[in-house]
Each structure stands twice: as C-alpha cells, then as structure tokens.
Amino acid sequence: MSVVTTMAMYTVGVSALTTRVSYPLYAAVPAPAFVAYHRRYNRQILPVIIVPAAICFLGCLSLPFLRPAAVPVWVALLIAAGGLIALLATVTAAVPAHLRLQRDGFATDAYARLRFADRIRTAACVGSAALLVWSMVLAFVPR
C-alpha cells in the first residue's frame, strides 16, 4: 500500500505540473514546430509519467482485493474508482488526443479534448491520493 500511495502522490505532482505548465505550453509552440516538439515530449515521458501513472492506476484498482483490514471496503472502492476513472480518461481521451496532435499538429479540438481528459484524470488522482494517505493513517498509525 505504501508503494501505491507514493506513486499516487508522485502522479498528483506530475499531473499538476502537466496541467499548469506542460499542456499550456502546447498552445505556445509555433505550428510548424509542433509535431517535432510533441514527438520529443512523447519520447521523454515513459519513465517519468507513464510508468509511475500505470503503477498508481493499477495499484488503486487492486486495493479492494489487497487492502489492510483497517481500511474500510468503501474507502478501497473509492480509491479503485479514482484509479479506474484516471485510467479511462487517459486511454479513451488523452491518448487519442495526443496521437492526433502528434500526427496532424496542433488542433484546437484535440487540444481541448486533451485538457478535458487531463482535468478528469487529475481530479481522480487527487481524490485517490488523499484517500490513500488517509488509509495509510488508518492502517499504520496506532490508535
């Protein structure tokens, strides 16, 4: 559980940086340079964004099955729901938007879809991370 909590906190930080810095910069890249910029961005994100996020999302999904006894089932289910929502927002909206941006260049509608998916993913990650921290307190702090 501590690994999932750590990855969730890390993912929240990366999500905040992406929301506030990385994605807004997309709109500032000159159109002729956008595809090259996006390809370079995508080559860099596997170890710092994709792998930790996958660990977080899948770890959240596994929590109802692997939760410590002190963590209520409903809390584990909410954490899992956050992981599922984040995963679905990524796979169904963010990834297709990224693929389109990389293939066709900057497009307002693909960018808007990416930003929408990012807001959903970030909110889900924040919710799961907060519940995971609370679960760590329930599971490991003596009362």
Rank of each mutant, 00 (worst) to 15 (best):
V35W: 02
V35I: 15
A36E: 10
A36L: 11
A36W: 01
H38I: 08
R39Y: 01
R40G: 12
R40K: 13
N42A: 13
R43Q: 13
Q44R: 15
I45N: 07
V48W: 02
V51I: 15
V51N: 05
A53D: 02
A54I: 11
A54F: 01
A54T: 13
I55A: 10
I55M: 08
I55K: 00
C56S: 11
F57W: 09
L58N: 06
G59I: 10
G59W: 04
C60P: 02
C60L: 07
L61T: 05
L61R: 01
L61S: 06
L63I: 11
P64N: 08
P64G: 09
F65N: 07
F65K: 09
P68G: 12
P68L: 12
P68E: 10
P68D: 11
P68S: 13
P68V: 09
A69R: 14
A69Q: 13
A69W: 03
A70V: 04
A70S: 09
V71H: 03
P72G: 11
V73F: 04
W74V: 15
W74R: 12
W74C: 07
L78A: 15
L78I: 07
I79H: 03
I79N: 02
A80M: 07
A80C: 10
A81Q: 03
A81S: 14
A81N: 04
G82F: 04
L84R: 05
I85Y: 05
A86R: 04
L87D: 01
L87N: 04
L87I: 05
L87K: 02
L88P: 02
A89T: 05
A89Y: 03
A89C: 06
T90C: 10
V91L: 14
V91Y: 03
V91F: 06
T92D: 00
A94H: 07
V95W: 01
V95S: 08
V95T: 12
P96T: 14
P96R: 11
P96H: 07
A97L: 09
A97Y: 02
H98D: 13
H98S: 15
H98T: 15
L99R: 15
L99P: 00
Q102A: 14
Q102N: 14
R103Y: 02
G105A: 10
G105I: 10
F106I: 15
T108E: 12
D109Y: 00
D109T: 15
A110N: 06
Y111I: 00
Y111N: 12
Y111V: 00
A112M: 01
R113T: 14
L114H: 07
L114D: 00
R115P: 00
F116D: 00
A117Y: 01
A117H: 05
A117F: 04
D118H: 10
D118W: 02
D118C: 09
D118R: 09
I120E: 01
I120C: 03
T122A: 11
